[in-house]
Design a protein around this nucleic acid. Sequence first.
DNA 1: ATAAACCCCGTACCTAAGAACGGGGTCAAG
DNA 2: CTTGACCCCGTTCTTAGGTACGGGGTTTAT
Lengths: 140, 140
Amino acid sequence: MMGTIMRHLTIGKLAREVGVGVETVRYYERRGLLAEPPRKASGYRQYSADAVRSLRFIRRAKELGFSLAEVAELLALREAPEPACPDVKRQIATKIDDIGERIADLRRIRGALEELHSRCESTGSLGVCPILALLQEDTP
Amino acid sequence: MMGTIMRHLTIGKLAREVGVGVETVRYYERRGLLAEPPRKASGYRQYSADAVRSLRFIRRAKELGFSLAEVAELLALREAPEPACPDVKRQIATKIDDIGERIADLRRIRGALEELHSRCESTGSLGVCPILALLQEDTP
DNA sequence: ATAAACCCCGTACCTAAGAACGGGGTCAAG
DNA sequence: CTTGACCCCGTTCTTAGGTACGGGGTTTAT
């Protein structure tokens, strides 16, 4: 058999692929974030490429400051077929706004860092620190 | 004495102002994130308005997924006057890039949610979930 | 001037998110 | 066919980031 792309990953390969520990993968499964994969007769988990993507998503979202509970919510939205739509729609809108605020905050911090950076570059003179200035804004 | 704006806050007022617990404020002080304020003769901490801003900044950054250690680094940059500039400049650039990636990730997630939202709105039909689609992208 | 509300400090406790362990089965390479 | 690497499960340990407690002084509103 040649040409058969790697269809199934063991938990160890999956974990290494995404850069997490095996324990973490099993933990996510227990938490319901990662679907339970099919098993071999031996009991070994067999993951598909989709699992790699799901796992990557979870990591990304977690690095962005979402708790695992929030990640679970995001993933749950994916499952909402259409029946709960009227209500789910609000939830989605709320999350969109929330993310918009996060982006704005990050931009503000980045802007301050950029100013620091260029200031560092040009003159050696240093007036007010832009990070401090950033702190000045209360509700921009 | 009228007209004197509240110059000094007790720790409790500071905490309430920002929406955290008193213990949290003291914890941040211990961690070196928040400067030790002057004290009254009684030992009570006296905070200025700056403390409110610093504390808000810490909370924002933390909600954005920065660890307290990272927040401390960000705040430390503020202090770097100019001597360590050559080296610090790299650090700043790195952080700027890091934040850029976070923003990109958030945008991608938001985009997916927006599509979910509009899809919910228009037809009841539901093809592939955009969040699932988002997961498909490996290195966009 | 006294009670309620607040502050001090130190220590103990808690939750989230894993990481490590231990005893045992499994798979592939030599 | 055995040996090293890998997997199973359940349980325990750790770390970050707070929270709560307890005993005692301080401020403030009545």
